[in-house]
Design a protein around this nucleic acid. Structure first.
Length: 275
DNA sequence: ACAATTACCTGTATGC
DNA sequence: TGCATACAGGTAATTG
């Protein structure tokens, strides 16, 4: 599932391929993906606009266009944004095709149609789902231990739910939440208000380490995720607990268990992550 | 005020 | 073999 490392990998792979290129036309096969206007208007507004750069905020991709417009994209669970040649056979569930010069295309593919796409002018982020309400970027220089401590001060509730809350920290999803909690040695249902300073520091280090490792490995390809060129990532080889139910804990050998916590399938070690 | 559940979708795996 | 069912999880909306 595309979380911060996956979205960042898509951004890095697409940027050199798209920067400076003009959108010569847009085909919309399934308009339901576009959330803030009709397909016809979307295509009309985008024709002949140039892609300046690609940004990322949390799990959102931001295609900045040369004249102040931005295409805001969220891949949700199965969304893919793939740069290809016209001759490449079209994948099933291809919903939007951006035509580029020289027989190149950018295709939005999404099996489950959960993905979201907005076309807005700069400063109109309020209409883009949760984009305007995102918490800090965990891989930015501003995400210091001090900032993280301040973020936790006065907060209550389960730890996993907190990590998954995009308004608290941007970009962590189910895979990295489980990996972070295991790395920090904390139970997913531990209450945030009971965290001691050493645990807060361990969490901060685990968030930065695991997300950075995910980016370095070019994301996690368990089912659908691929980067901007259709290539799989490698972090699935490094998973310690996620998708590892019933296997021995890499640290102590106890069998890993799975339960539903914060509404998500959650795997942890009953020994290393005691409540 | 908070947490749990549901809706949105389709493909894959499982059970009978 | 076929069919029904459960499950995967990002986020918003709804329910408890």
């Amino acid at each position: 599932m595309p979380e911060l490392p996956e979205v960042e990998t898509v951004r890095r792979t697409l940027e050199p391929l798209l920067a400076g290129k003009k959108i010569t036309g847009v085909d919309v096969r399934y308009g339901g993906i576009i959330k803030n206007m009709e397909a016809g208007e979307f295509s009309r507004l985008l024709k002949n606009k140039t892609i300046a750069e690609i940004g990322r905020r949390g799990k959102y991709l931001l295609l900045e266009l040369s004249d102040g417009y931005t295409i805001v994209i969220h891949l949700r669970m199965t969304g893919q944004l793939i740069f290809t040649q016209v001759a490449e056979p079209e994948a099933k569930h291809t919903h939007i095709i951006f035509h580029l010069p020289g027989k190149e295309q950018l295709r939005f593919v999404d099996i489950r149609k959960f993905g979201l796409l907005f076309l807005v002018k700069k400063g109109e982020w309020e209409q883009c789902g949760g984009l305007a309400r995102l918490g800090p970027e965990p891989l930015s220089g501003a995400f210091t231990l001090q900032a993280w401590s301040a973020l936790l001060a006065g907060q209550k509730g389960g730890l996993k739910a907190f990590l998954l809350n995009q308004a608290k920290v941007a970009g962590i999803g189910n895979i990295y939440a489980d990996e972070i909690l295991f790395e920090a040695g904390l139970h997913p249902q531990k209450r945030v208000e009971t965290l001691e300073s050493a645990e807060i520091a361990a969490l901060h280090a685990a968030i930065v380490a695991k997300l950075s490792e995910g980016v370095a490995c070019r994301g996690t390809s368990i089912s659908d995720y691929v980067d901007g060129q259709g290539e799989k990532g490698g972090f699935q080889e490094r998973l310690q607990v996620y998708d590892q139910k019933g296997r021995p804990c890499p640290r102590c050998g106890t069998l890993l268990v799975k339960a539903v916590i914060a509404g998500r399938g959650t795997v942890c070690c009953p020994y290393c992550q005691r409540r």
